[in-house]
Nucleic acid binder design. Structure first.
Lengths: 219, 219
DNA sequence: ACTCGATTCAAACGATTGATTGAAACTTTT
DNA sequence: AAAAGTTTCAATCAATCGTTTGAATCGAGT
């Protein structure tokens, strides 16, 4: 029967896998490095998880699932209030869920995992989209539609929703560029930066949606 | 001395490398597949280019360099005219340079190469940033500053510029998601789609910049 | 103390990778 | 036509990958 030590080894491998997969993606990560970081034998991954791919699928699900402290955007969006207020909550939670490290991890951002998954999609992506991303998208697009009005064409709703998502994902999508073009000042307060970033995205997006609404009324 | 046949083999390898690297990125691409597609021996890459890495560096430079038919955004932005007009030209050229296939290639978008490079930056990225990305960024941020006014803080200029870049890169950053959430209709006219996409990004961004300007005047 | 299932470990396996080698084929020069 | 230089090729190298193996180790139940 699995005792504490066994669970500890499995847990240690899982935690190491989260960090390594986040840093390197599925293909570039090696089970040897994961086991080395976990202080375990190379065979431990296959013994406890079946294969590297199954371990990755579990990690992916864990990273995307969110938590109470770091909920997914849809879960943090209230059902009542003005569309602007709800969008503000959505964007703030979305930004945090992408850039804040997973609970109990120093070095695992969903954004990093996500980027590797976009560059090299794994079979597990379908499940992630259905389970986690589609609900978030649904909340966002419903909100955008409320703000654009019922006569807005579907394409415009998706366009504006995409513009919001794009801005949130910006830093994770081009991190290596910003670090070269405009390196972040050392000792920066990450929480304050994320709040300011979310504020900017919200303000910029409200202006963008307003412009889209105007162009709609004009035609 | 290199004759036509030699040039042909080198050229064929280069063209195959462009496609393979764009589709898989540097690490996942293999010299065996490149040579196979080129109808050449495995040793040809090292003979003609020195190493897989040097070949990749040449491919990267080619993809980012742009062309007369597909210029980089900065090169397509006129020096005169209203900031709005110049931003429109910038965004249109930017969108095309990211999503339109390189001249003479059916399956090489800068966006695909870029995405892999962001997920797994190569040593060649520094040169690409200095040579190609920094000039584009300079033109964009100068434009944004013109529209925000001289009293706008640097952070706001970078924020709004980033919001524009983010929207343009959206589809390349989350392609696997959109294809699952909202598959593109088959037989879609890519040129028309890109024009419409650029129009949306421009309109949305003008609204966003206007909102940022207003928030500036208010404080 | 002994047994038995669960876990860990060093060692190795087969496959694949980028790179190298030296001879063969080819082109150009003499 | 012989020589020199360039290019191609099959074969192979060392390294690394995920996975497997079988024995050693451990811990709880009898």
């Amino acid at each position: 029967m699995p005792d504490d030590n066994a669970l500890n080894t499995k847990e240690k491998i899982f935690r190491a896998a989260v960090s390594v997969f986040a840093a390197k993606g599925f293909a570039a990560a090696t089970v040897r490095e994961i086991c080395s970081r976990a202080g375990a034998n190379v065979a431990a991954v296959n013994y406890h998880f079946g294969s590297k791919e199954k371990l990755y699928a579990e990690v992916l699900d864990f990273v995307f699932a969110g938590s109470e402290a770091l909920p997914r955007a849809a879960a943090a969006t209230p059902a009542v209030g003005s569309p602007e207020e709800r969008l503000a909550a959505f964007v703030r939670a979305f930004v945090r869920s992408v850039y804040q490290s997973c609970e109990g991890f120093d070095d695992c951002e969903l954004g990093a995992v996500f980027l590797h998954e976009m560059a090299n999609p794994s079979p597990a992506l379908d499940h992630i989209v259905d389970r986690y991303i589609r609900p978030d998208a649904r909340v966002l697009f419903t909100l955008v539609r409320e703000m654009l009005g019922p006569e807005a064409p579907e394409d415009l709703v998706w366009g504006c929703g995409g513009s919001i998502v794009a801005q949130v994902l910006y830093h994770c999508a081009i991190g290596p560029i910003t670090s070269r073009l405009r390196p972040a000042p050392e000792g920066m307060d990450m929480d304050a930066f994320l709040d300011g970033f979310a504020d900017h995205v919200l303000r910029f997006s409200l202006g963008g949606i307003e412009a889209a609404r105007r162009s709609l009324a004009r035609s």
